[in-house]
Design a protein around this nucleic acid. Structure first.
Length: 430
RNA sequence: UCCGGAGUAGCUCAAUUGGUAGAGCGGGUGGCUGUUAACCACUAGGUUGGGGGUUCGAGUCCCUCCUCCGGAGCCA
């Protein structure tokens, strides 16, 4: 008797095996029953014949409730009638725990109800597929940086610094000192880059914005590389290659999950680097040609981004924004001082901004001037200014929002399903 | 914060002009040896989001509060 899991069934045809898992669904005939068993690696059909398992086990099968935990033993066979192609002809059935009435029935539910039961919803086939794609995306990012000479340097979650003064931060009482939950690891990554040359951080970030849209969470995950001796061009190159690598990996390893999600993979398969590029000024012209009332100098809204990126079937790099609408640390364009050397990457198919980044200001005096203009407390940024006092070099980096990337690659309308336990304006539970 | 929409059975939704609150799923009982979100029969299940008002009569009309959803702003 081999104890195995559902994803391994094809290697055990003709053998007697033991499966442990949960009741996904069951159907019964008078003397024949079908138990859909979920074990975390997949779902398999177990066929129970009264004459094989005996009266007691068959009666037990009849009493099984959805999501009860059970152990089934039986012989594996290939059968076209079975979802997944393999099934178990059961010899025995035992129950670890008989579940109470399960709130999530096999029929449709609303998202509010499902979110209230997120801890259980994660067991469903669709959520399972999304989480596996998320896992693959995160793993691909790490593999990409690890294999390109980047060092993982974790950055603090509790911080006295606002990375961007304009955004709202979650405050925290830290032994009677007022501190924040981080909104980006970037400033610390800049210090790390001066120590290790190429680094990345991967962690949760927090934004106390009262955003109520399909693209916003108050707690989300970002991967943020930072490179010393790196200008805007090279920064864009790294971002493009990372996105291409990530998408390629998901297509290679998680096709089954994309199928479950009914994701049309053609747009993903067509991805090619380098991605098309548009300067901010060119993007404004695109908007004007589309009869959008937009003045040079303003920031793009979600609708503007959609209009701009709709013209391309590739991720779109938009670069060189007006410095006035960008963060204090962005380096100014030597060719046009109104511009900052920032870049965003907009995902195709209307998914909008997934990456934001740029070249950092490396001149001490200019950085200090910009810091003051942004009304940020100078004393809290002394350590950051030190980086420009001691061997300052051109350096750049970017951040990618994991949930937005997952939503795009899975083809989901909302980021709330892309993270196990979403935190939003009106949701901190479960 | 602003604009729009929605709250009816455990869940998803119906309910005509203001006139006896219903169905499917899920639960319970029984039936069925190849089911595919199985099917068939029977059955239990309701303070129609809260409060107030109009009316012979309110799920339906009016006022008010609450909650949620979608969008805007801001951003990854």
């Amino acid at each position: 008797m081999t104890r195995t899991t559902i994803n391994e069934l094809s290697n055990h045809v003709g053998q007697e095996v033991q499966l442990d898992g949960w009741v996904y669904n069951s159907r019964s005939g008078g003397k024949l029953g079908f138990l859909m068993l979920r074990d975390g690696t997949g779902i398999a059909q177990c066929v129970l014949s009264k004459s094989d398992v005996g009266d007691d086990a068959f009666a037990l099968f009849g009493r099984l409730t959805q999501e009860s935990s059970v152990t089934v033993t039986g012989t594996v066979s290939a059968d076209e009638r079975a979802p997944g192609g393999y099934e178990i002809h059961a010899q025995s059935l035992s129950v670890t725990q008989m579940a109470e009435e399960y709130p999530i029935s096999p029929k449709e539910h609303g998202t509010a109800f499902l979110m209230d039961h997120r801890h259980l919803w994660l067991r469903s086939r669709r959520q399972h597929a999304i989480m596996l794609v998320r896992h693959e995306i995160i793993k691909a990012c790490r593999d990409f940086f690890d294999s390109n000479g980047f060092i993982l340097m974790d950055t603090p979650i509790i911080t006295p610094n606002a990375v961007e003064g304009t955004t709202t931060l979650f405050g925290l009482n830290y032994f009677d000192r007022f501190v924040y939950l981080t909104q980006s690891g970037q400033l610390y990554s800049e210090a790390a880059a001066a120590a290790f040359r190429k680094v990345y951080c991967f962690g949760p970030t927090f934004r106390a914005e009262k955003s109520k849209t399909r693209r916003h969470l108050t707690e989300f995950w970002m991967v943020e590389p930072e490179m010393a001796y790196c200008d805007l061009e090279e920064n864009i190159h790294w971002a493009e290659e990372m996105v291409a690598f990530m998408v390629g990996r998901v297509l290679e390893s998680r096709r089954e999950q994309l199928d479950i999600l009914e994701r049309d993979t053609a747009p993903l398969e067509g991805l090619k680097t380098p991605f098309p590029r548009l300067s901010y000024t060119e993007a404004v012209d695109v908007l004007k040609q589309a009869d959008v009332d937009f003045e040079w100098g303003g920031d793009f809204g979600g609708g503007d981004e959609t209009i701009i990126s709709e013209k391309y079937d590739q991720p779109l790099v938009v670069h060189r924004f007006p410095a006035a609408i960008k963060a204090f640390y962005m380096k100014l364009d030597a060719d046009d001082e109104r511009l900052a050397l920032g870049m965003d990457i907009l995902a195709p198919e209307g998914y909008g901004e997934i990456i934001g980044g740029g070249q950092r200001e490396d001149d001490y005096a200019l950085l200090l001037k910009r810091l003051k203009e942004a009304n940020l407390p100078e004393d809290k940024y002394q350590w950051y200014l030190d980086l420009r006092r001691y061997g300052s070099v051109p350096h750049s980096g970017f951040g990618m929002g994991i949930e937005r990337a997952v939503a795009w690659i899975c083809g989901l309308p909302h980021v709330r399903e892309t993270i196990p336990f979403p935190r939003m304006l009106n949701r901190v539970e479960p």
